[in-house]
């Protein structure tokens, strides 16, 4: 009996130990430390760290325009980005499950931007926006291409949105394809025989039946757009005048550029709470709408 217990303990340690150890080092310990530092004036360098209570939180909400601007920018970006990537991803998937040729080839094309990291993508698009768009604008005279892309707040915002949609919708498309393919053929045929239009089939049959995929895709899109950093850095660096700075970038800047680690961790704690709250609410809401076939 004693031997067996030892063997069990040994197995528990061998199997779970390594995972738990690395998990503790990189997530649990920093997370707990972050909570403590949020209430201090830690500057990352000096040895003395003073407890300042709620000062950091008061400061970021009452006396930090850049933070509030980045909060608002990120909120707008998340709303627009989540809607557009999901619409594009869903409709690509919807059409790719129709009776058309070269489906696999098209799927590859739509997914490809996703395998390139945000940083390199952003640099590639910087060129497209600055030189490519200008050339097309000169040649065609279409005003859209003649805007000062990435040069002001509006074109900066929509520029990042465009690249984000180009990058992410292919990923969501793959999830939607898997889900649409699972919608039973009998149900669709029955609807067709009953004289349902394409739009009715889409709205009343396909969409309700793929709600599990919608839950996942909304979750992914929210978390990508709310945490967006690489694209932001490589496309606009938050400029001009910090008008396109994401929340993630604001946290980064506070800690690693301004060396206000205490304030930075306080912001990152708020960041975590907002992400956790949004994703919990979203998953609850969309789960309710999932139906059985």
């Amino acid at each position: 009996m004693n031997n067996k217990r030892w063997a069990g303990l040994a197995q528990q340690t061998v199997y779970i130990g390594p995972a738990l150890l690395f998990f503790a080092i990189t997530i649990i310990i920093p997370f707990v430390m972050g909570m403590y530092y949020s209430f201090t004036d830690w500057n990352g360098v000096s040895g003395t760290v003073t407890w300042v209570g709620l000062d950091n939180f008061k400061r970021m909400f009452t006396n930090d325009d850049a933070f509030l601007t980045s909060f608002w920018f990120t909120t707008k970006f998340t709303i627009v980005g989540v809607i557009l990537t999901n619409l594009v991803g869903f409709f690509l998937a919807y059409f790719l499950t129709k009776n058309i040729k070269m489906r696999n080839w098209l799927r590859t094309v739509f997914f490809m931007p996703n395998v390139i990291g945000g940083l390199l993508l952003g640099f590639i698009w910087q060129f497209i926006f600055i030189k490519g768009f200008a050339t097309v604008g000169e040649a065609t005279g279409i005003p859209f291409f003649q805007l000062p892309w990435l040069g002001d707040e509006t074109t900066g915002f929509w520029g990042i949105i465009m690249v984000f949609v180009w990058q992410s919708s292919g990923y969501l498309m793959v999830i939607y394809i898997a889900s649409i393919t699972n919608v039973s053929k009998e149900v669709l045929e029955a609807a067709e025989i009953d004289g349902a239009s394409r739009f009715q089939v889409l709205r009343s049959i396909i969409v309700p039946l793929i709600m599990p995929a919608v839950t996942v895709c909304l979750f992914l899109a929210i978390s990508w757009s709310f945490k967006m950093f690489d694209l932001n850095l490589s496309l606009t660096k938050g400029g001009p005048y910090r008008s396109t700075e994401s929340l993630a970038m604001n946290v980064y800047d506070e800690a690693f550029v301004k060396n206000r680690y205490g304030l930075g961790t306080a912001k990152s704690l708020v960041f975590f709470l907002v992400v956790a709250a949004i994703t919990l609410v979203q998953v609850r809401l969309t789960k309710k709408r999932e139906v059985e076939a």
Binding site: I27, G34, F226, G264, S268, L269
Partner: peptide, 16 residues
């Protein structure tokens, strides 16, 4: 832990 954004732990992680 999957909900925790990387940016929320990166500052203390560097210290660790």
């Amino acid at each position: 832990a999957m909900v925790i954004p990387f940016q929320s732990i990166m500052i203390p992680l560097l210290k660790v």
